[in-house]
Computed example of a mutant assay.
Amino acid sequence: MTQLVQPTARPASGIVPWRGIGRVWREMDQPVAGRRVAGTAPVMVAGVAAGLLVAVFMVPTGFNLAYSDAQSHLTIARRLLDSTSSPGIQQLGTVWLPVPHLLLAPLVLVRWMWHTGWGAAVLGAVCLGATAAGM
């Protein structure tokens, strides 16, 4: 007959780093309780982190703006709020759906985020995290 060994308790006065991560890791295999799915938040954080990590390597090279469509999306989003002729919703009259441009508009108001493509990279990382969490 095998005997179960109980883990020893840590002293209450000691600081245990990463306690929250251990709790989250243990909850990953719990069944779904109502509308809460265990592990959704860590999966989203991991997706956003992965997207930003890729952006750190891709944005400085300029490959994120290699296709003219990427530059067009950034420009349309910027024209929504900053245009010499007529800024506003009428700038969405293109062949693309308006949702990405509306989400991107606040991020490209900062000139360097618009010029380098970091606005789209940040939005893409957040969308990657949300999609991973939804899956």
Rank of each mutant, 00 (worst) to 15 (best):
W118N: 03
A133M: 10
Q6P: 01
Q30V: 01
G93D: 11
V43P: 01
S85L: 10
V5Y: 15
A66C: 00
L80F: 07
T40K: 07
A38N: 06
S86L: 12
Y67P: 05
P60A: 05
I21F: 15
V122D: 02
A121C: 03
L103M: 15
Y67E: 07
A41F: 08
L123A: 06
A9M: 09
A121F: 01
V32T: 11
W112T: 11
R78L: 08
L52Q: 12
W18G: 09
Q3A: 14
A12D: 13
P87C: 05
L104I: 04
S83H: 14
D82Y: 05
G134I: 00
G22Y: 00
S85D: 15
Q71L: 08
L109V: 08
T61N: 05
W118G: 00
A125S: 11
R78H: 15
F57R: 08
V126Q: 05
V56M: 10
S68R: 13
A70G: 05
G20R: 09
F63L: 15
V24W: 12
D82A: 08
V108A: 02
R23I: 10
G134M: 09
T75I: 03
L109E: 13
M113Q: 08
Q3V: 15
G119A: 04
H101C: 06
L102T: 06
G134S: 04
W18V: 09
H101K: 02
T40V: 14
H73T: 01
L65C: 11
Q30Y: 03
A41R: 10
A66I: 11
D69S: 10
V126R: 09
A77K: 09
G34A: 09
R79C: 06
V32C: 01
W96K: 11
T94R: 02
T94W: 14
T116K: 11
A105M: 04
W96N: 10
T8Y: 08
V126F: 07
P106Y: 03
L4S: 15
V48T: 07
D29R: 13
F57V: 13
G20S: 10
R23V: 13
P17H: 09
G51L: 05
I76S: 05
G47H: 04
F63S: 10
G22T: 00
P7C: 03
L65M: 14
A41D: 07
G22M: 08
V110Y: 00
V5T: 15
V95S: 09
A130C: 12
L102H: 08
V56A: 12
A38D: 01
G47S: 02
A49L: 15
V108T: 04
A66N: 11
L123R: 04
V110N: 04
L74R: 02
S83K: 01
L81H: 02
C127W: 13
L80I: 09
V59D: 01
W96E: 06
S85A: 11
T8V: 14
A12L: 14
S85H: 09
V126E: 02
R36F: 14
V56R: 06
Y67K: 07
A38Q: 03
P60Q: 13
P87M: 04
A105D: 13
W96L: 13
V59W: 10
A12F: 11
A49V: 12
L102V: 14
Q71C: 06
